[in-house]
Each structure stands twice: as structure tokens, then as C-alpha cells.
């Protein structure tokens, strides 16, 4: 379970800088919710932590080691990431089962293939998320909610130490949303994972997270305990 430190980072893509001069520390085992309107830079922040976005200025640390071109693959193998959007050609020859296993491919390493341990883990996670009936279906033909569950399973397959969850409740029906909420709480309690949940739904953030970060226009508006956040909202 790792600590994350962002030191005055400016993050963006080729021509655009989304996050400007942001500093943040997330302690190991914390469950942090990032809340804010569209375009606030929530997804970009997650991409900065796993090295998918370009950190133009500043530094990202996992524990005390800097995330850079030499260390990024090692860190990505312990970071479970569930993306917000995911479009795939419905005809792509990749089954949901393949996508689940892909989660552990980096961790397994080159020239090796999933074995008994990975098979048992895949079975356990699939049962937990109720995706066994979907496993033999093409991933591109699953509904939005089904895809989300498969991608959550994919992220858990590497037995991560850090979990980055981007709008994971979008597309899920109420019943499944409640189930995923319980699973996440349970995993966090048992494994003490450092977890960051991005959502534009304040209710889910309030339910799951002990610390809440409110982002707007690439900067922090609020960062503190859930109770302080609720007081602030009430005051406003």
C-alpha cells in the first residue's frame, strides 16, 4: 500500500495544459474521492499518477520514488486503473475473459503466461463481480455497465496496491452499483489499498471516501475530511 505525492505538477496533453501547478499528498491506505464538474481535470489527475498523461512540470512520487520513464512500468504493475470511457469495435476478436486476464499480463512479465494462481484469482473476481456469464462474450458487444464490471475485474487481477477508479458507477444499475460499493469497501478494508475514486456524483463520493477533494478548472477548491466537506456544503 503506497503513498502518492504530487509536487507542483502541471499536466496535460500535446498542446493543452489541464492541471496547473497542483500539489497533493495521499497517504497509504487512504480512500480519497475526487469530485468536480466536467473538465475539472479529474481524469487527467488519475492519468498523471499512472503516467498516461504528460507531466509537463513538477514531479510525481509513489512512496519516495519518482515516477519517470524508467520506473513507470514497475509502478503501473501495482496500480489498478479503471478508465472512464472505453470504445471498442464490437467485432474486435477479444473476449471479456481476455480483458480480465490482460490486467495481470504486465505483472506476469515477458515469456510467461497466466497459470493456476491467475486462473483462481480470475474465477474469484469474476464470481464477486458476477461476470462469469459474460466471460465468453466479445468485449465490444457488452453493455456499458457490463464493460465497467469487466474493467474493474481487470484492474483487480493485478492485486494492486493503488486503485484508480474513474467514474466507475456510470452505466451501472442501482443494484449493481450497491454491490460494487460493498465490494470496494470490503477490498479497501481487507487490503488497505490506497484508492482514488473520481466521480461527479457527490453521493457515491460521500458514501465511500474518508477524504474529499473538490476540483475545478485544473485546481483544488477543497481538500479535507468528509465531515469538513459536508459542513462546507451545508454552510454554502
Amino acid at each position: 500500500m503506497k503513498k502518492i505525492k504530487l509536487d507542483s505538477i502541471s499536466v496535460g496533453y500535446l498542446t493543452e495544459t489541464v492541471i496547473k501547478n497542483l500539489s497533493l499528498e495521499i497517504e497509504e491506505g487512504e480512500f480519497v474521492g475526487i469530485f468536480g464538474p466536467n473538465g475539472a481535470g479529474k481524469t487527467t489527475l488519475l492519468c498523471a499518477i499512472n503516467g498516461l498523461a504528460i507531466v509537463k512540470k513538477g514531479r510525481v512520487f509513489i512512496d519516495s520514488e519518482e515516477l519517470n520513464i524508467f520506473s513507470e512500468n514497475r509502478f503501473r504493475r501495482i496500480i489498478g486503473y479503471v478508465p472512464q470511457h472505453f470504445n471498442v469495435d464490437p467485432k474486435l476478436p477479444v473476449l471479456a475473459e481476455d480483458v480480465v486476464y490482460m490486467g495481470c499480463y504486465g505483472k506476469i512479465g515477458l515469456f510467461k503466461f497466466p497459470g493456476k494462481k491467475e486462473n483462481q484469482l480470475a474465477y474469484k473476481i469474476s464470481t464477486l463481480l458476477e461476470i462469469e456469464p459474460l466471460l465468453k462474450k466479445p468485449f465490444g458487444q457488452l453493455s456499458g455497465g457490463e464493460r465497467k464490471r469487466v474493467l474493474i475485474a481487470r484492474a483487480l487481477m493485478k492485486e494492486p496496491e493503488i486503485l484508480l477508479l474513474d467514474e466507475i458507477f456510470a452505466w451501472l444499475d442501482i443494484k449493481m452499483m450497491e454491490k460494487v460499493l460493498i465490494i470496494l469497501k470490503d477490498i479497501h478494508k481487507k487490503k488497505h489499498l490506497t484508492t482514488i475514486l473520481v466521480s461527479h456524483d457527490i453521493e457515491t463520493v460521500k458514501t465511500l471516501c474518508s477524504r474529499i477533494i473538490w476540483m475545478e478548472n485544473g485546481g483544488l477548491i477543497f481538500d479535507g475530511k468528509k465531515e469538513a466537506f459536508l459542513k462546507k456544503i451545508e454552510a454554502e
Partner: peptide
């Protein structure tokens, strides 16, 4: 044959393959 799983991940999505720790 040797890199079947890495190629499959890249085919699926390059960014997601990166996020898994694959070069």
C-alpha cells in the same frame, strides 16, 4: 507466439496496455 499476450493487449488498446505495465 512468444508475445501473444502483449500483442493482444496492444491490439485491444495501447493506453490500457501501458496502464497494465506493458511496454
Amino acid at each position: 507466439i512468444l508475445f501473444f499476450k502483449e500483442i493482444q493487449s496492444v491490439i485491444f488498446n495501447r493506453d490500457m496496455a501501458k496502464a497494465s505495465g506493458i511496454s
